[in-house]
Design a binder for these strands. Structure first.
Lengths: 209, 209
DNA sequence: TGGCCTGCCTAACGCTCGTTAGGTAGGGTC
DNA sequence: GACCCTACCTAACGAGCGTTAGGCAGGCCA
């Protein structure tokens, strides 16, 4: 087996349990209180170590956030991959439904990493944002491609503005982190509701059908 | 005319220009950097006064945020009122479209007050949130009532879960503050896109119609 | 003319922030 | 048994935080 030459790209499987634990706890605090309000001392307290000991694992607080956001995006990408694989052979609506469900699942089934991305990215320090923007753009481009291909195949309205459509859909899904509680509601129901709202709309003409 | 007995409830028209200016500038900084990262000294610098002078207008930094969020909600309520008035006599889809357009307009046409609400509320200090939650709930209840009435009249699908539907719609609209720039795109177009996506959906069956 | 209110100032308070320096206990390797 | 690496510690740094005390200039009103 090849030696574990820890490359520039951090291998998630190689992370020590200590480092992973710190990331998870820090992500939770960033999610609840925001990046600035979650001080390194509060994070260290929650982990059960001294603040200074955090610097054995990370060079700076910003790196903590960068690592968390990166991991969140990795989860979303993996979810997209899985959905893409599972979607093959199904009809267009089902394919979209699988991706919607995958995005929502990633938001709730992988610790706070993905959710903190939604809430913290906007006001993150400039250097952190600069590091994450390309990753985020790549993920959004995958959605754009998905919708574009559905338009081209005639499954979505031909005059759909793919950009706004994608942003409204993802925006609505991401905003669910502010109110949806997976321990109360069903993720499948939420995914179906979101899919239906996007695909068929809710309007009905009482005079018509 | 009655004397201006400044009551517990702050009358927006009575505010001195200094106070209004501080609120506007602080709201902009809260929007760009978040509540914690926008220090009172940075706010004071932007206003052009000393940090200590802010305390002539506000008792604490938290009160600054509370006032901003309250004003943001007042703008949204006023927009809802206006839309409700303008909607009378029109068909169901147009009535909803007017409310969608009003909500989006409030997000972009009244300085940073409404937008900062969307981005800052989640991680605001507990006391601030406690003060604002009732106002926010009241606004959301107005939307719930609107959608409920449309369902009851048969204009929206009878089996619509009004709660999630409202949250997905408002979530999508609120999330536009992360990408929409009213100086580039048209607000009317955005409103129509959002309305269509919610009302008719984008899915089309290529085998069918 | 004298007093008061408004709106700002300078100076400083105690506290918390992110970060660094330097030390130590324990386990693995030659 | 000497060495070193990992994972933590205590102690402290300077900077910035929100906030307060006290003063001062100018306009308003009696």
């Amino acid at each position: 087996m090849t030696p574990p030459t820890t490359d520039a790209a951090p291998d998630l499987r190689t992370e020590s349990p200590g480092r992973a634990r710190i990331l998870e706890i820090a992500a939770g605090l960033f999610l609840d209180h925001g990046y600035e309000a979650a001080s390194v001392r509060r994070i260290a307290d929650a982990v059960g170590i001294q603040a200074a000991s955090l610097y054995h694992h990370f060079d700076a607080k910003e790196d903590l956030l960068t690592a968390i956001l990166r991991q969140g995006m990795a989860v979303m990408d993996a979810a997209f991959d899985e959905a893409h694989e599972a979607a093959s052979g199904h009809d267009a609506r089902t394919r979209l439904a699988l991706h919607v469900r995958a995005h929502l699942a990633a938001l709730y089934e992988n610790g706070p990493f993905t959710a903190v991305h939604v809430t913290t990215f906007r006001t993150a320090p400039e250097e952190v944002r600069a590091a994450i923007v390309p990753v985020r753009d790549a993920y959004e481009a995958r959605w754009t491609d998905l919708l574009r291909s559905l338009v081209d195949a005639g499954h979505l309205a031909a005059d759909t503005a793919v950009g706004p459509a994608r942003l409204l859909l993802l925006g609505g899904m991401n905003a669910t982190v502010g109110w949806f509680d997976p321990s109360v509601g069903s993720l499948d129901d939420l995914a179906e509701t979101a899919t239906r709202q996007f695909w068929s709309g809710l309007g009905r003409d009482p005079e018509g059908t």
